[in-house]
């Protein structure tokens, strides 16, 4: 089929360098919602104060044609400097940070602490009946950790969403 090479849904991590100006995030998000694209996660922060640039990392999914369209539409936004498909240009490093609050006492508390050790999660807050763990890793690592904690008194989770950067010496 010439018009529809494949309907396979692919997951892509896209980095977008934008002017840090009011409304720019709304433009990006509005583009995704207005055109019906998926956002699995989205992070944004200023990365260059001098040049007033922010970097947005979007994890999205769609057919090849949709992903190409997403990139073209992002590039069309006026305050967008560059768009890079880290999944296509790969390899890249993807990381996410989670803060995980777990409450419990006795054996459950010990087990939570033991698993946190296995995952290299840091304890950033502790009371006699709770911990807050900080864990950095891939989205999958975080999912595994949270899955185990859900058996051990999981109270609350806060995740940053994925940030990513390409491997090697070359810059954005």
């Amino acid at each position: 089929m010439p018009n529809d090479l494949t309907n396979k849904i692919e997951k892509h991590t896209i980095a977008v360098l934008v002017d840090n100006e009011p409304g720019v995030l709304a433009r990006v998000i509005g583009l995704f919602s207005g055109r019906g694209y998926n956002i699995e996660s989205l992070t944004v922060s200023e990365v260059d104060k001098e040049n007033n640039l922010s970097r947005i990392t979007v994890v999205t999914s769609g057919t090849r044609m949709i992903v190409e369209q997403i990139k073209a539409q992002l590039e069309r936004l006026v305050p967008v400097h560059r768009v890079r498909d880290l999944t296509d240009d790969g390899p890249c490093i993807e990381r996410e940070l989670a803060l995980v609050k777990v409450a419990g006492t006795g054996e459950r508390r010990n087990e939570a602490m033991r698993i946190a050790g296995i995952f290299n999660a840091r304890v950033v807050d502790a009371t006699l009946s709770s911990f807050i763990f900080e864990l950095t890793g891939t989205a999958e690592d975080l999912g595994d950790f949270i899955g185990l904690m859900s058996e051990l008194g999981l109270v609350e989770i806060s995740r940053t969403g994925v940030v990513a950067i390409s491997r090697g010496a070359a810059g954005f």
Binding site: N3, D4, L5, M65, E68, Q69, A72, Q73, E75, R76
Partner: peptide
């Protein structure tokens, strides 16, 4: 460029 391959490849 966003018009390319939008509806028809």
């Amino acid at each position: 460029p966003s018009s390319i391959n939008k509806n028809v490849r």
